[in-house]
Design a binder for these strands. Structure first.
Length: 109
DNA sequence: AATGTGACATACC
DNA sequence: TGGTATGCCACAT
């Protein structure tokens, strides 16, 4: 597993419950802010990661569930978010600005 | 080494 | 508002 994927998984695995982040934020945190696509690509392999990663907490910069189509029942992604208290409307997280979690917070722990 | 791909991000019709 | 096109980066083949 390449370091990049490993880091992506590590970050995603540590997203606090009830929060969400974006592909771009993760990419930037890893030092390749332009590699947001690669982050999503990494999520593609998330299902093969050890405990399945909370990929539902990762959305695009708009807070929209663009990747829901990759979940088994696509509706599952929204359900999981709502179970955590995140309001999702029209496939987009409401108050995403408030829900947004910056990976840099990991550095504070 | 080269080409194709993608769960993004932006810019432009 | 919304679809299409391009740039970008790392991975797969």
């Amino acid at each position: 597993m390449s370091d990049f994927y490993n880091k992506v998984f590590d970050v995603v695995a540590q997203i606090p419950k009830g929060r969400a982040t974006s592909y771009g934020a993760i990419a930037q945190f890893l030092g390749a802010k332009q590699a947001s696509r690669t982050v999503g690509y990494a999520m593609n392999a998330s299902h093969q990661a050890n405990p399945t990663l909370p990929a539902h907490r990762v959305v695009n910069r708009n807070g929209c569930l663009t990747g829901k189509h990759h979940f088994h029942p696509p509706e599952r992604m929204q359900e999981l978010l709502e179970l955590e208290g995140i309001k999702v409307k029209n496939d987009c997280i409401e108050n995403f600005q408030q829900i947004f979690w910056d990976p840099e917070e990991l550095l504070s722990n």
